[in-house]
Every structure is written in structure tokens, then in C-alpha cells.
Design a binder for these strands. Structure first.
Length: 433
RNA sequence: GCCGCGUUCGUCUAGUGGUCUAGGACAUCGGGCUUUCAUCCCGGAAAUCACGGGUUCGACUCCCGUACGCGGUACCA
């Protein structure tokens, strides 16, 4: 039997990272089994419907590379995968249940008459365990609302059956309603799919992740300079672990190794610090060319786009996110605003005189300036002036950048060029008047 | 209240009866390298495996109970 899984988000607001997390497992499992990954929009709640969120879902999935095989726009026309367009279908099946007297009308709605005897059980793939509910805990529930739209509990079953979904991967907040779904399958005499109820991602208060935790949409991670590979890798680390204990691996590696039994059934907290570390690892692993390419895509309006790659080797070990590139390198292409207090932090008594000496040395340095000569020259000068080498180099650093922290000094000077370097030191001197 | 799921270092996790005086990673602390910041290397601290009972020669691992957390108990999903 073909494996068919579906991601069925409801467009009720900005999709957060939890949706992306669920999508990862849908995608990975479908690929592993050579099956299909289907996207379906569950937009039956007209009150909470937010049109924008539909595009946001697409954007998120596209960015992370979770391409769906069937669903809106891909592998099929839009409408068959959107529940609000399938009202007739739900009505037809509800009528069937009405005829069988398994359902009844009440205040304009159609309700399902649950079985009260016995228990309903299934085997859940997450945790590899049986879950059962006494049937007398299952109240009659609404199939079709009085506005004509189906409820999740009904539309979900109808669609999963009609779309031949083989495995339902979803959050464990649906565990409690699974008995209801199973009763509907039974009422129609349909074979239910296999269920895998994943734990939910939680916020810092251990409650289900939501917007009130400032939960971000995946594209926000993109906008902050995270790489999609790192985000996906990080997501994989939540709830799943590599059999060899590896922390860094690709999606295709995960596709090869994925098994439900390795899913941890307890909820996980999204720790952004680890994501930042991982992102840094991915950045360091990349070739300079690739990193430059990513930076150019990321920094669309960068003032020195064509010179940007020169700085790449200088910052590769220093940035965690693509966005970190800017504060670390803007002094290379932009005019420096000097601040007296920054110089003061160096604790050098006669900064101005020292800078003048530096300027003289620099003027006399044989061009093109060489790293070793540069270093030796200023170590010697530091000694003459009774300064530590650190003070000396920091002073030069501040004079050319206005900052205490920059990439490698000499490498930065190479990018600035000899004339610009001299000009900046002169500018620094005049500030200290 | 009732029903269900969960509970190993701050965080993500490994662990499926003995090799666990519990391993790894992030974060953290200390040291080394170093002209800043990083990277890199070395080392430390950090979980009485929620608690209490069983079962067993032996339990983090199996069973029962309790506590706590979360979810459901909606014409939300």
C-alpha cells in the first residue's frame, strides 16, 4: 500500500515553527517510504480564518524545502485540497449517516451519535503503544455546524479517507478526539489510517507553543539570517535523535534513518541558543563562495555587494547568523563615526601622539604593506612607547573602524586599502584635538 | 471533576534488566592559543534518572499508586 501523509494546517494565523516541525516529519516519512506528501488546508473555522496565513504557509514550506506532491497549486488543482470548497462532499456523507440513523439533527447542526459501550483503542506509532478510551467518555459531537461547514472531527475523517491517507501524523492534542474519528470510520465501514501523535513543541512555560510565546514563523528565522539547512537540522533534533548520536546531519540522511520508534514522546522546548550554534556550524562548513552567495541573497540592499566576498574569509569564524555580517563589516564600506569614549576605553594617555607616530610609521612602510612587517613595526613601536602590543593594535583598530571589535586587523586594512587607512587615522587624530 | 499523554543535567537528548558511581550536545565556568572578538584545543561543574511501593539475585529500564506538567472534555482545530 502506498504511503500517503498529509500536513493539514488551518489558516487561522501566522504559522509558527511547530507547523514546520510537523511538516519535517511528514516530509521525511513520505520520502523514506517513497510515498506522497500532501498539503491540505483545513479552513472550516470561518471566524478565525486569516487569508494571509495561506501564503505564509506556502512560503514557509517552500523555504525549508518541504515540497508537497499534492495539494494547492502543486500536483493538482487548488480546490480539491481546501475544505471550504468541499462542503457538498461533507454534506453527502453526513446525510448518509443521517439515513443510517447514526447521526441526528439538532439546532441546525448534524451530530454524531457515539457508541457508549466498550472502549476504543488503537496502536500509536509514537511511543509504539496502545491507547484506549472508555467509550462512555465520548459525548455526541457535531459533524456539520449550523453554518454548513464541517467540524475538524468530521472533515478530517472524510478527507483522510477520500485522499487515501495511510498515516496520520499530527500533534498529540488530537489524541483525545481520535476515538471520535475512529467511530466515524467505523460508521462508514472504512479502514482507518495509522496514527502517530507527536508531542507538541512548548514555550518557556512548558505550555504548547503559540504566538503568545513570541513563537516565530519560519520565515522570521530566515529574515534573521538563519540558514534553512540549520533550521531543518535543528528541528530534527527536537523529538528525534540520530542513531549514532550525530548532531549535524542533512535531511537526506534523516530520510534514510528515520523510524517512528526513535521519536521521543515528551514535549520539547525550542532552545534558540542551540539553533544559533548549529547555524554557526553550517556557516563555517560552507565554502567561501557559497557563503558569499548566501550573503548576497540575504543582504539584498547591501551598499557594497560586489566587494562583499572579500570580507567573507574574515568573518566566517565570527558569525552565527547571516545578519551578524553587517555590524562586523560595515566599517569596511561605510564612513566611520568616531566616538571619543571608545578611544578612552583603551586607557592610553597620549593617544594623539601615539596615533601620530603610527601615521608616520605607516607612511614609511614599504608598499604594498605586508602582514609580518606591519606586525613587527608596531610591536617595536609599542615597546618604544611603553605600551602593550594589545594597546597598540587596539588603538589602530579603533582608529580605522571606530570599534573595539572587528575582524582581523591587517586583513581589514587590506580591504580598506592603504590610502583609506591613512585617511582614517588622520580623521581619528583630528577627532582627538 | 472526568479522560488521555508525558516526567533522565538549565535546555535538546542517549539509555529498552546487569557494561550507568547515567553518555553526548547547547548553554555555563576555568585554562590554552591569540593584536580585539570569534574559531579551535583541553578541563570542570551540572541529573539521588519526579516520588513511593512492588516484581527480580539485580530497575533509569517492567508493574501499581501518588505528585506535577500538558492536552481534551467546543457548532476551535
Amino acid at each position: 500500500m502506498e504511503v500517503r501523509v498529509r500536513l493539514a494546517p488551518s489558516p487561522t494565523g501566522t504559522p509558527h515553527i511547530g507547523t514546520a516541525w510537523q511538516a519535517l516529519f511528514d516530509f521525511v516519512f513520505a520520502k523514506k517510504m517513497n510515498g506522497k506528501f500532501i498539503l491540505r488546508l483545513e479552513d472550516t473555522d470561518r471566524e478565525r480564518y486569516v487569508p494571509d496565513s495561506v501564503t505564509q504557509i506556502y512560503e514557509m514550506l517552500n523555504w525549508l524545502g518541504f515540497d508537497w506532491d499534492e495539494g494547492p497549486d502543486i500536483g493538482g488543482p487548488f480546490e480539491p485540497y481546501v475544505q471550504s470548497k468541499r462542503l457538498d462532499i461533507y454534506k453527502k456523507y453526513a446525510t448518509e449517516l443521517l439515513d443510517k440513523e447514526i447521526a441526528y439533527k439538532e439546532e441546525g447542526a448534524i451530530k454524531f451519535k457515539t457508541t457508549k459501550d466498550g472502549e476504543t483503542k488503537w496502536h500509536d506509532l509514537v511511543g509504539d503503544k496502545d491507547i484506549s478510551f472508555p467509550n462512555n467518555t465520548q459525548e455526541d459531537f457535531v459533524l456539520i455546524k449550523s453554518d454548513g461547514y464541517p467540524t475538524y472531527n468530521f472533515a478530517n475523517v472524510i478527507d483522510d479517507h477520500l485522499m487515501q491517507i495511510s498515516h496520520v501524523l499530527r500533534g498529540n492534542e488530537f489524541i483525545s478526539s481520535t476515538p471520535k474519528h475512529l467511530m466515524v470510520y467505523q460508521a462508514f465501514g472504512w479502514q482507518p489510517p495509522k496514527f502517530a501523535h507527536f508531542p507538541v513543541l512548548v514555550g518557556s512555560d512548558r505550555a504548547k507553543l503559540s504566538k503568545r510565546h513570541g513563537a516565530k514563523g519560519a520565515w522570521e528565522f530566515r529574515d534573521e539570517g538563519f540558514l534553512k539547512e540549520a533550521v531543518v537540522n535543528f528541528l530534527a533534533l527536537l523529538g528525534w535523535s540520530h542513531p549514532e548520536g550525530k548532531e549535524i546531519f542533512s535531511v537526506s540522511e534523516m530520510i534514510n534513518l528515520f523510524e517512528f520508534k526513535d521519536i521521543n514522546a515528551s514535549s520539547a522546548y525550542f532552545d534558540i541558543q542551540k539553533l544559533e550554534w548549529l547555524n554557526g556550524e553550517y556557516i563555517r562548513k560552507m565554502s567561501d563562495e557559497d557563503l558569499a552567495e548566501r550573503l548576497k541573497e540575504f543582504l539584498v540592499d547591501h551598499p557594497a555587494k560586489n566587494k562583499l566576498e572579500m570580507a567573507v574569509p574574515l568573518i566566517k569564524d565570527r558569525i552565527k547568523k547571516l545578519s551578524d555580517f553587517v555590524p562586523l563589516t560595515d566599517f569596511l564600506w561605510e564612513k566611520v563615526e568616531y566616538e571619543k569614549e571608545v578611544f578612552d576605553k583603551l586607557n592610553i594617555k597620549n593617544e594623539k601622539q601615539v596615533l601620530n607616530s603610527i601615521l608616520d610609521e605607516l607612511k614609511n612602510l614599504e608598499r604594498p604593506w605586508k602582514s609580518e612587517v606591519f606586525e613587527q613595526t608596531f610591536r617595536d613601536l609599542a615597546q618604544d612607547l611603553k605600551l602593550s602590543a594589545t594597546q597598540m593594535f587596539q588603538l589602530i583598530r579603533v582608529a580605522i573602524s571606530g570599534q573595539l571589535v572587528t575582524p582581523s586587523l591587517f586583513e581589514s586594512i587590506k580591504i580598506l586599502g592603504e590610502e583609506e587607512t591613512l585617511n582614517r587615522i588622520k580623521a581619528a587624530i583630528s577627532l582627538l584635538e
